[in-house]
Amino acid sequence: MIDTKQNAMTEEIEMLVGKYGRTRDALMPIIQNIQVNHGMVTDFAQQEVARMLDVHPVEVYGVVTFYSFLSETPKGRYIVRLCKTISCDMAGKEAVARAVERELGVKFGETTRDNKFSLEYINCMGMCDQGPSMLVNDLVFTKLTPHTVVDILNRFK
């Protein structure tokens, strides 16, 4: 079971390497793809990428942990990222955040039991004129209120 999963991962990475190349500058696109497809970059995937690009696994690990959008631990299918920077904050982010937490029954930084939603804060995402704003995976939602945010989450449930 684990083996077939790993083989599939190796194949996927081989394909990505075929597309982006074997030089170090292919590292980011490759792990970004893995992240999107699997919600994380597993330690196995990191080592396979390292092997194919001829870098040290720990360097891949260093990169994965540097960027907020990459993660070595599992995330939910939908990552809800609520902007916490000042403009959104002043526009009412706090009320929205509490509403989301109550709705999903988890706190920010956590993932729901069914692995559907992960809640995260994010720094300014460039929607300051329409705050509070959030991303669900790569979809943007703006001018949130406690009510609209709940409606939006329900669409993903």
Binding site: D25, L27, M28, V55, Y67, S68, L70, I122, N123
Partner: peptide, 21 residues
Amino acid sequence: RLGAGAYVCGEETALIESLEG
């Protein structure tokens, strides 16, 4: 190329580092 959520990568040399993987 897409960034991955790091403000400092707007700084030009950090950006280049990021481009280089």
